[in-house]
Amino acid sequence: MTEPDFLATTRAFYDAIATDYADRFRGALDTMPTDRAVLGLFAELVRAERPEAKVAELGCGPGWVAGHLHGLGLDACGIDLSPRMVELARAERPEVPFGVGSLLDLPFRDGELTGAVAWYSIIHTPAERLPEVFAEFARVLAPGGRLLLAFQVGDEPLRLEEPFGRPVSLDFRRLRPERVEELARAAGLPVTSRTVREPEGEEKVPQAYLLARKPAA
């Protein structure tokens, strides 16, 4: 099967900027109390569903969120489209397993995960392909499993040209919480919590965090 162009473009972008990105944003989660609180809620809900829960960060970049979840006591792993990002994640978090994978074809068995986190990772998928991504989320989650999504709020995409001086560019698609909730519900993952906070620091737009749950059997 021929790979969609947007996957190749996204992979090339993140392979090119991986080291610069990791150096620039390392430790950023330490300064984001809302983000940590949302991740803590997710971890508590997942543990309540299954104490020995397996969770995955889908689109993990350098693996900071997966590492944070591991630190909260979860059996966490991560996948990313960029081999270079995965290489950095393995080096920074050797205690957490990381692998290369796509949101369109997740490397997990049906119902293998009790929790999944897509932390600013659905933003590079064209709108017409998002239902496929959410169908994959639903497939890999066990009954009662939790999905956490984070994304920028808005209608107009942000295009980054030559970040860190690298000769690459990519669109970052902002999304409306209502639309993401529709996608989750259509995939059989009704949203149980929605949080939107105002921009902080260098952010330009509000940030959204949605929690969804696959109905128990």
Rank of each mutant, 00 (worst) to 15 (best):
M1F: 09
M1E: 04
T2M: 11
E3V: 15
D5W: 02
L7G: 08
T9F: 02
T10H: 07
A16Y: 06
I17Q: 03
A18V: 10
R24W: 05
R24V: 09
F25T: 15
R26N: 14
G27W: 13
D30S: 14
T31G: 02
M32A: 06
P33R: 00
T34K: 00
A37M: 09
L39Y: 02
L39Q: 04
L41I: 04
A43P: 00
A43F: 02
E44V: 03
E49K: 09
R50V: 05
P51C: 03
P51Y: 01
A53N: 03
K54H: 08
K54L: 12
A56Q: 07
L58Q: 08
G63F: 09
V65H: 05
G67V: 09
H68W: 12
L69G: 00
G78Q: 07
G78S: 10
I79F: 00
I79T: 14
I79M: 09
S82D: 12
S82L: 05
M85W: 07
V86T: 07
E87A: 14
L88T: 10
A89G: 06
E92L: 13
E95A: 15
E95M: 04
V96M: 03
V96C: 04
G101S: 05
S102I: 06
L103E: 11
L104C: 12
L106T: 12
P107R: 11
P107D: 11
P107A: 11
F108Q: 03
R109M: 13
D110R: 13
G111V: 02
L113A: 05
V117H: 01
Y120F: 14
S121A: 14
I122F: 08
H124L: 01
T125L: 02
E128L: 05
E128G: 03
R129E: 08
E132F: 08
V133C: 08
A135D: 00
A135C: 08
E136S: 11
E136Q: 15
E136N: 07
A138T: 15
A138Y: 07
A142V: 01
P143V: 02
G144S: 08
R146L: 12
R146C: 02
L147S: 10
L147N: 01
L149H: 08
Q152T: 14
G154C: 12
D155G: 12
E156C: 01
L158Q: 15
R159G: 01
E162D: 08
F164E: 01
F164W: 15
V168E: 09
V168R: 05
S169V: 04
R173T: 06
L175Q: 14
L175V: 03
L175G: 05
R176H: 09
P177F: 04
R179K: 12
E182G: 01
L183V: 07
A184W: 00
A187L: 07
A187Q: 09
V191E: 11
V191Y: 13
T195N: 02
E198K: 08
P199G: 09
E200W: 02
V205E: 15
Q207E: 14
A212C: 09
A217E: 15
